[in-house]
Design a protein around this nucleic acid. Structure first.
Lengths: 236, 236
DNA sequence: ACCTTCCATGACCAATATGAACGCAACGGT
DNA sequence: ACCGTTGCGTTCATATTGGTCATGGAAGGT
């Protein structure tokens, strides 16, 4: 799959360069261009689109010299540009967030942010794209309600938040390290044995990783008794 | 807090009445009107907005006689109408979902759906609204990144609807995934072999899906032995 | 040194796929 | 027509695991 083409819209040169560099560091994304104000952003978008090489994602600053970010979004929609938008702003007003959502902003980043936060948001967007694009090799793919729900869920903000109560970073790292080394799927009991922790603890961390999308969870059938969950590290 | 005003856009009278009744049953929502096609929907939205009584949420069918739902959404954005949109459709094409998201659809419901599913989606939207509205003391509201993340999360988090006792979501997903891939009708025994589970379990989940209307059930004759039920994934 | 906070543990109860046993409905030969 | 054969539908007890609660012990702050 080809890279997701990104346009950075930001008036401050330092920030624009930083965001562009951030995009360049991410696998699966490529920087299509940079625009210092709303007019040039719209012009660039139209040009790329006319050239058959449309931008698919816009990192849009809300505070621009000529137009507000929301106006740019509105004009994009009016002209039928389908690029997704991640809003980047220092303005923390909730009604702006509301409006942004209804115009179709998929993510909302508040300045200042770290590279980790930035990468996290773009990664979740990438996962969203993949889930909708993975239509199981057919011209016509039938999506079920749960498929759509799952795709929406990956747009949800994951785990930059502090860990849920009852989890420690050191134990989590140990579990992650072990899971990474496993080729096949492993059960909670096997993790318990391998790491010498209790079944409850092993399960709690595996469950957390499964919710965060770091590991996938499937059931293991064939034996009597309640089905055993097995966990597998997600690669690529 | 006052009710969220909802407009139902649906050409089929039976479905329109049903959706309207659904809205009426929900606390915190009130039905502002119903429109049978795109033109009347846009007109109604404009009228309500001009009267200072704007619609805040549109339940938008994608398949309408005059305009496609995506076109309606685009025109709404072009005229600056900020109502949020929940798409309702029988069309399960993933690229439609993609476009819908980039235009600002906040939820996506696939027909046919139960009242429970419907209520669930609207409840999560309601929660999203409340989280953003909670700090609204005017311009004073300083939202942190985690606040915004949390609001997004409640908007897109998949809600787990209660399953009948004895069924698990992971097994159900496995069966659904397998059924979706099958072109022809399959028997419970074939599902058993393919997924490695027991005949009893396979049949239980197929029966559940048949009752829910997700698969259709017919009898297969011609071979000795008791006639075998065969199941087929319902498309369109 | 005491208190608070936090995480891992052990034990309990609830959940769920399995296998076997029984019954039922169509097929095919007599 | 009748009856044995065949293979699936249905039910039930059972085997294991998942989930939750209260407890114990360690780490850090006062």
């Amino acid at each position: 799959m080809s890279d997701i083409r990104v346009l950075v819209v930001e008036d401050e040169p330092v920030a624009a360069a930083a965001h562009g560099a951030y995009v360049g560091r991410l696998k699966g994304f490529s920087l299509a261009g940079t625009a210092p104000d709303g007019q040039s952003a719209l012009r660039l978008l139209a040009e790329f689109s006319a050239a058959g090489n449309p931008v698919e994602l816009v990192l849009l600053d809300m505070n621009l010299p000529d137009l507000h970010g929301l106006d740019i979004a509105r004009r994009m929609r009016a002209s039928g540009l389908l690029a997704d938008i991640i809003a980047i702003t220092a303005v923390r007003e909730l009604n702006i967030v509301r409006s942004a959502v209804s115009i179709g902003v998929v993510q909302y980043l508040i300045k200042p942010f770290t590279y980790a936060t930035f990468a996290d948001k773009l990664a979740s967007y990438q996962q969203f794209r993949e889930q909708l694009g993975a239509g199981s090799g057919g011209a016509r793919s039938g999506a079920s309600q749960s498929d759509v729900d799952q795709a929406f869920a990956s747009l949800r903000a994951p785990s930059e938040l502090p860990l849920p109560k009852g989890l420690s970073t050191s134990t989590l790292d140990a579990v992650k390290e072990f899971m990474k080394q496993q080729q096949d799927a492993v059960s909670a009991t096997e993790v318990m044995d391998a790491l010498g922790m209790s079944r409850v603890t092993a399960r709690r961390y595996l469950e957390y990783l499964a919710d965060a999308g770091t590991v996938s969870r499937t059931a293991r059938y064939g034996a009597p008794g309640r089905p055993e969950n097995e966990y597998r590290w997600n690669r690529g």
